Simulated scan of single mutants.
Amino acid sequence: MCNRWGRPPGAGEDAMAGRDEATWRVGVLFSRSGVSGITETEHFLGTALAIEEINTAGGVLGRAIEPICYDPAGDTDAYRSYARRMLAEDGAEVVFGCSLSASRKSVLSTVERHNGLLWYPSIYEGFEYSENIIYTGATLNQNVFALADYLLQEHGKRIFLIGSDYIYPRESNRVMRDLVEAKGGMVVGELYAPLDGDDAAHGAMVDAIRHAAPDAVFSTVVGRGAERLYRAYAQSGIDRARCPIASLTMAEGQIRAIGPDLCRGHVLAASYLGALAGEENARFVAAFQTRFGAERPTSMWSETAYAQVHLFARALAEVGTLDAARLGAAALRQRLAAPEGDLAFDGETRHIWLTPGIGVARADGQFDVVWRARRPVRPDPYLAWSRFEANSLDEGMAA
């Protein structure tokens, strides 16, 4: 556990000892090690920066936000155990945390049982609703829809699907398949590797891609597996300009870890890219790099986590309580001029309006923004009103 970022995970003292009633105690539950350590560390740092900014400005209603932090190290059972400890023993009623859908689903019943409020900053597959969760990441209609159009128009009709073997990749690939086929394209292969798969497992994916000769690859391989995949792809000699890997997750931080030159030409669909223009993003990038180092880029992972803490603080200032029902209702009324653009909630779904974008990776590790929607897109986590045959790119313009 860490308190105000000061103690390392696993510190053994009783978290309730010396509890400061003049602070707002919140849980922070991201893996800074393990299979998703890179992306969840970015979630963690975005959360930390926002809390520090709020506290430096005087806190919320004169009280500082006090973070109680654990590192589940990518272990699903540890997420559940730490969530219970935060809510039942540590005195937290709000948790910022989880990234993979497996970890979110592992803590859901615990958060509901203890009537806590989980702020979840990750893109995910949708088809979920809980009065105890605020969803601030993109749903599939806010990233996959535009990406399908981009790949079919810019690269060709033959698409190969790959993913890590758990719910988010399988559901995302199911929707991508439906989109590709509805628009006259063809899925020429679909493969999965274990979430902790080794170099051989991901090398076999690349061999299958080379044999199928698609026009583009849609990848939902995540975590360390994605790093293995992109390295193997670069070594394969496949022309990335002709046949890129397109994903919803391979952002600036992981590109830095893999090596930017090995990722040049690959595609990312996301509502935030570090290269976005605008004063809010310039301020965020400067603050992030001043705090954590000029070599560490911002990304969709850090920015979403950062923005949701500021949305939380606005809601808390309005109601003055961490009670899940009252705070959750207030959260859905908030708006924020975030680094990625204007944010507002859809009260029916508890998800957020976002502005989709598409970037192509450069040799310096940033993205050229090649398309962005003209306006925020309403979340459709159940795909109840999204039209699969429509062209999402018609609703945007090059940035």
Score class of each variant (00 low, 15 high):
A212S: 15
E348V: 13
G46W: 00
G97N: 06
H310A: 05
E340F: 00
G203A: 11
L262Y: 08
N143W: 01
V175P: 03
Y129M: 03
I65N: 01
G156C: 01
E154S: 14
A146H: 05
H43W: 01
G97L: 10
A204E: 11
N3S: 11
S392L: 02
Y135F: 15
I54G: 04
I238K: 02
E128A: 10
E52T: 11
S36C: 06
L140H: 11
V95Y: 12
D215N: 09
N391S: 12
G225M: 05
A270C: 08
T39A: 12
E125Y: 03
G347P: 05
V369E: 05
A193P: 02
L108H: 09
S103D: 15
A270W: 02
E227M: 06
E389K: 09
L151V: 09
P194Y: 05
R4Y: 15
S106T: 05
L151H: 04
L393E: 03
P214S: 09
L383N: 09
R283H: 10
E171P: 00
V95N: 09
A212Q: 07
N55G: 08
T349G: 04
A398C: 09
R291Y: 04
E340Q: 15
A363Q: 08
D346M: 00
A92L: 04
V35C: 00
T290A: 15
A363H: 09
S219F: 09
R240A: 15
G12P: 05
E181V: 15
E154V: 11
L276P: 00
G163Y: 08
H43K: 04
I123G: 08
Q289K: 10
F96Y: 03
G12S: 13
V188W: 05
I51Y: 04
Y129C: 07
A373T: 09
A246P: 05
A390Y: 01
L316R: 02
G259S: 11
W301R: 03
